[in-house]
Amino acid sequence: MSVLVVQGLSKSFGGVQAVGDVSFAVAPGEMLALIGPNGAGKSTCFNMVGGQMPPDAGSVVLDGKPITGLGPRAISRHGVGRTFQITATFGSMTVRENVQMALLSHRGKIWQFWRPVAGRYADEADALLAQVGLEAQADRATGVLAYGDLKRLELAIALGNAPRLLLMDEPTAGMAPAERVGLMQLTRKLATERGVAVLFTEHDMDVVFDVSDRILVLNRGTLIAEGDGASIRTNPAVREIYLGTGATSGGH
């Protein structure tokens, strides 16, 4: 059974249709890439699934439960982890504390006024940090981390609420090419191990073809192709968008 089922998702901004009638599904452990040129509607799609933006029409179903139009907090509670294009972490905390917050929130331990945070779920947080390769940085201030490490931290935070679905918006934006593949292979490994469905948008085609199980191609708000790497590579419609006009180089 699919973790996420999206049907007929649509959104317009002032008469301009940003996303029209998009449907897809993601299975447990599957990595689904959402690609397309700038302005194709990837981020809009993403924000509707993640709760940052309510859709005009269509439905989003997670594990059989409708989550259409819910806010980001409720969607998180339903088991969706999220990383952002521009990293969002808690700058006044250490790396470990960032993950501890996700764990405390997941277990409903936020409204406590007495027992200090220090040490709570610290082992669990360290285990998550170890999985993303940040264990050595656990005590450092988040503000001093390198950008690539921040992206890893976001991944560890997102895993903190034991998600069924990971939403990753441009997970490798701003990273060096070598790091990109590393992060996504790490994600790939975690997805397989934990059976987490991953939906991600990505500009780097090397990354996309390297790690994704399936690829969705959006153009002007509609789904124009869907399939594995090989079929997408040879899909004439996709080639048309990325190569045909010569305006974009396809993967940069």
């Binding site: 993640g50 806010g71 980001p72 907090r73 998180s76 509670r77 982890g81 999220r82 952002f84 969002a88 972490t89 808690f90 700058g91 006044s92 905390m93 504390e97 501890q100 917050m101 996700a102 405390l104 929130s105 997941h106 331990k109 936020i110 409204w111 406590q112 006024f113 007495w114 027992r115 200090p116 945070v117 220090a118 709570r120 935070i157 997102a158 903190g160 609420n161």
Partner: peptide
């Protein structure tokens, strides 16, 4: 002081640091 070192105080600080992230981990801003 106690409250600030407890989960509530951290959550409050989390909301200040990044409301986006706070919501994404399920905090009620």
């Amino acid at each position: 002081r106690r409250a600030l070192y407890a989960p509530y105080g951290y959550a409050l600080r989390a909301v200040r640091d990044s409301a986006t992230r706070a919501r994404a981990i399920g905090l009620n801003v």
